[in-house]
Design a binder for these strands. Structure first.
Length: 351
DNA sequence: AGCATTTGACCCCA
DNA sequence: TGGGGTCAAATGCT
């Protein structure tokens, strides 16, 4: 853990330093002769740097604090025992849906939306790949929308009981924008992540597949960071990882993969990670203070979609000490929330 | 053959 | 009761 924090600490300092440097660059580019694109790029980079730093900050604090994991069933309970149990083999999905618990659990799944730019250059007819394997299971014309909505679920749903789903809808206003609504987070191990990723991605966008053709599971933390940096560098081109939590990084995924089934203490990390973003109702005043929309690291914009009532349900479901379908809310918000005293100003956060 | 996508039908919930 | 979400058979693709 200590060595882990050492790495985090270095990264944290790195990112903050980088962020400040970028902010200074941006300041220089605020003159009228500089292009908007340059400014936007710098802005993206700055936000990315600080997001990373904040994530690490949250991660660090979560790791250092004992988490109340053992007594919660959390993720392990929902995907594995619900879909992967021996019973489920004899039980049709229809029966599952008829089951009130199941329906309730689905309702409790965290939900958020990314706004993803389609790549016009490559003729991509959909949002960029997000790094996960999805299988389309439906399409529906939506009453108030010009374009139909597509429904996807995790390819590993049946095999690993991963309940993650997403909906993709082309924006009415700007057809080059896709609104991708994610539900639930991935509990699957994307075994040949790089390969499957590449295969699905090649279908969508062959030009981008090389960038992502890596296997996270074998990455060292530093490698992950390097990879992350590489991706961030092509943020406007390569919206690749935005699943699980609104912001997902390779090292997060690696962690999740490593701790499967997710009842080990390490899972508190991912839980916390997600918590930091999935609880806008409580923490957005801190984390989302910049904008109601959160520009993600890869050029998309995501909005948390848990309604207040949903969130209340999520909280009550967990705090009642019973089944928490996906989220680990049993840890204190203190760790997950961004420190209100975080010295943005002293870091030159505002250029 | 095995996997993904399409699409009409069905189910649930507001 | 209608809209949204999902199922599952049919079809397509590799």
């Amino acid at each position: 853990m200590e060595s882990g924090w050492s790495w985090e600490h270095k990264t944290l300092v790195n990112e903050l330093t980088k962020g400040m440097g970028l902010a200074k660059q941006l300041k220089l580019h605020l003159n009228p002769t500089s292009s908007n694109e340059t400014r936007e790029l710098l802005l993206h980079k700055i936000l990315s740097s600080y997001e990373k730093a904040l994530l690490i900050l949250n991660w660090g604090s979560s790791v250092s604090q004992p988490q109340h994991i053992g007594s919660t069933t959390s993720i392990a309970e929902s995907p594995i025992s619900v879909d992967g149990s021996p019973h489920s083999e004899d039980m049709s999905l229809k029966d599952h849906l008829a089951n009130k618990d199941m329906s309730k659990k689905r309702k409790l799944l965290p939900r958020w939306t990314d706004q993803v730019q389609a790549s016009s250059e490559t003729g991509l007819e959909g949002p960029k790949d997000d790094g996960y394997s999805w299988r389309k299971y439906g399409q529906k014309d939506i009453l108030a929308a010009k374009y139909p909505r597509s429904y996807y679920r995790c390819t590993y749903r049946n095999i690993q009981g991963c309940l993650a789903t997403k909906q993709v809808q082309r924006s009415d206003d700007d057809p080059s924008i896709f609104e991708v609504t994610y539900r639930g987070r991935h509990t699957c191990i994307q075994v040949n992540h790089g390969n499957s990723q590449a295969s699905t991605q090649e279908k969508q966008n062959p030009k981008q597949s090389n960038i992502q053709n890596t296997n996270y599971a074998n990455q060292q933390p530093t490698d992950n960071l390097m990879q992350l940096k590489a991706r961030l560098r092509v943020s406007t081109e390569n919206l690749d990882v935005n699943e699980m939590a609104p912001l997902t990084f390779p090292f997060m995924q690696r962690s999740e993969n490593q701790v499967f089934p997710p009842t080990t203490p390490d899972n508190s990390f991912s839980g916390n990670f997600q918590q930091a973003f999935v609880s806008p109702a409580t923490s957005e005043s801190h984390y989302y203070s910049v904008s109601p929309y959160q520009i993600n690291n890869f050029g998309g914009v995501h909005t948390m979609q848990n309604s207040e009532s949903d969130f209340a349900e999520m909280v009550s479901a967990t705090t009642s000490g019973t089944n928490s379908p996906i989220l680990d809310f049993d840890f204190t918000l203190d760790h997950a929330e961004l420190d209100p005293n975080f010295p943005f100003d002293t870091l030159g956060f505002v250029a």
